[in-house]
Design a binder for these strands. Structure first.
Lengths: 195, 195
DNA sequence: CCTACTATATATAACCG
DNA sequence: TCGGTTATATATAGTAG
């Protein structure tokens, strides 16, 4: 639809390719909007120009909402993370707001990708850090437990030795003896139950 | 562009809305394809019909590839999860293969969403379970530590008492007397119950 | 639900400032 | 690079089968 028919193949002339891109892009977005309104359907349209910029249209709900149907409750799932976690949804919101910001409208895809990368890295680090912290805590407590167990045994042996002395010295041997089991056993039972 | 001009607002007649949807949808997809070819750009177009089906077009790379630009290394980041985690990318692959499967081409959006929900739920459960396990381990070790600290103190007191006795008896040359078990044992039981 | 047919509305290629 | 004009190509609303 123009002065002459055009073949559908890559336009080699850089200039007219850019012009055509600009015109047809707005046309496509217009038609997408019309379809979504006329037929009450959800449409997500994302266009990455080869040299940097991102254009999008989303009908009905926001692009984020529509794309969320792909993730299900991805963002819900990350709510229980200890530290604030940037979900994909939030990332999209950030990207979107940046794109819609008139003053940064010229923000290149490269910039957006850099931003993305940073956010993803931050997220990965946060999660890794959380895991590491929990592991460290567990390992530390394991070590501490080992140490205290050894200490306990030592103390108990000491007591046993003293009791031996006691017995030896007292003719009757008044009963201090069996008490070591009394606190060891509950401990063992507790361990067994909880482990 | 038809026999008469149409207002861009929701078509109330269900039948003609469906007809219009069918016609304009193919038109929109055609135009998206043309734009992507003519101008050598990547385009992702996703259409959710309100009653069930999903249509899509993606120019250049696959829809998955294009949408991946939104996630960056999201799937990379989840690799360190304990159990196998279905990334959005994998989910998209699944959805796409289902959609492209000729025999299941009639798979409804409801079915796809059910599938999604299941995957997301599984993922959420896996993560929650992992967190819970780690927390439980930490709490258990905290309690155990408290218990052992108390026990150590008691044993130390016992030793101190016995040493006192020792001294006393050494001086006076008299046999042993008090035992501290009477205090110690109830205390131990309480601790055991609390642990 | 398509397919086909038109009449008409729209989109846009080439051109211009 | 942008916005407007115009001639033409395309899309599609209404209709029938």
């Amino acid at each position: 639809m123009g002065r002459r028919k055009v073949e559908i193949k890559r336009i080699e002339d850089k200039n007219s390719r850019q012009v055509t891109f600009s015109k047809r892009r707005s046309g496509l977005i217009k038609k997408a909007r019309e379809l979504s309104v006329l037929c009450d359907v959800e449409i997500a349209l994302v266009i990455f120009s080869c040299r940097g910029r991102l254009y999008e249209f989303s009908g009905g709900k926001s692009l984020v909402k529509i794309l969320e149907r792909y993730h299900g409750q991805e963002s819900e799932a990350s709510k229980d993370d200890t530290e604030a976690v940037l979900s994909l949804t939030e990332l999209l919101h950030m990207v979107q707001s940046r794109v819609e910001e008139p003053t940064i409208e010229q923000l290149s895809l490269m910039d957006l990708e850099k931003l993305e990368m940073q956010l993803a890295t931050a997220l990965r680090r946060t999660r890794a850090r959380k895991t590491q912290l929990m592991l460290e805590t567990i390992l530390f407590r394991q070590e501490k437990e080992k140490f205290m167990t050894a200490e306990n045994e030592l103390l108990e042996r000491e007591i046993a030795a003293m009791e031996k002395n006691e017995e030896y010295r007292s003719e009757m041997g008044i009963g201090l003896m069996s008490n070591t089991e009394n606190h060891r056993l509950p401990q063992m039972q507790t361990l067994t139950l909880l482990t």
